[in-house]
Design a protein around this nucleic acid. Sequence first.
DNA 1: TATTGTTATACTCTATAACTATA
DNA 2: TATAGTTATAGAGTATAACAATA
Lengths: 161, 161
Amino acid sequence: MSSKSSPTPAAASQANTQLADSPLDSSLDDLIGYALRRAQLKVFQQLVGRLAAFDLRPAQFTALAIIAQNPGLMQADLARALAIEPPQAVVLLNKLESRGLALRVRCKPDKRSYGIFLSKAGETLLKQLREVAALSDQEATAALSAEERQQLIGLLHKIYR
Amino acid sequence: MSSKSSPTPAAASQANTQLADSPLDSSLDDLIGYALRRAQLKVFQQLVGRLAAFDLRPAQFTALAIIAQNPGLMQADLARALAIEPPQAVVLLNKLESRGLALRVRCKPDKRSYGIFLSKAGETLLKQLREVAALSDQEATAALSAEERQQLIGLLHKIYR
DNA sequence: TATTGTTATACTCTATAACTATA
DNA sequence: TATAGTTATAGAGTATAACAATA
């Protein structure tokens, strides 16, 4: 860590990283995709850490919220809403159901499909999780003002909706 | 797809999805993390598709850009800049090197480490890739104006830097 | 024959531990 | 002993094909 007499770029980049954390990636600064990925990674990791206390993954939290908003929806609908494939929805739901947070109810008219619902425990937990997620958001975006957060959400929604 | 006489929420959500694409996830609308993830996914997939023509993944493109900006850097530096673990940097570099885009040069003072550089071919390809990435960005964020794109990048940089 | 959910499988991404060769 | 790079491995996440039950 003390190769002070070497004038090579390698040594220089090492020293800079140590001192000023000068970005090695500024040549990618004008790419939205790159900035999006880095920011998403940070916010996501923050949430993963918070949800770990509940032994939940972000996708499971999202699933709970979507089920709450669409009680009785089918697995195929859930998969589409989560942007995952049906087989993934199966294992995700299995976990939620085994933990007593959600349940599958056989459909009357079409016995192939289920209606998916939250249990009372699932609803209660979801309320907590919403607060946790909001707090996680705040922390991960502490550098932004309330106005800027609203601006950001508006811009992001324009992209994917 | 034609269960018209069923008044269950499941059927309703199905129909809505088909007709107005009304979001099943609007209860997550005020979470930055969620919006960030959905937007990132879309922009990322766009880029993945574009880079497929070059048989490259986004991380490989990013690596090329970082190497170009920091010629002679060490693998550990590259790994940190890419936010990946050193073992991942090995396989990534192996691929780039086997394709003649980058090269490892043994360090004079410390024979354990390498200096990493782009080949001439790597530099040439990188120029093309920058254009491809910029175009991919534009397409994926077609709903935004030029001003809004600049706004967005500024906000994202505030989050992760 | 088509569809819902499921199983099995494979491929990628990511993280960790252990090894080598140098220092 | 400590460090740079590497190997091996295991765990998620993701996608596809094939199957069972029902329509």
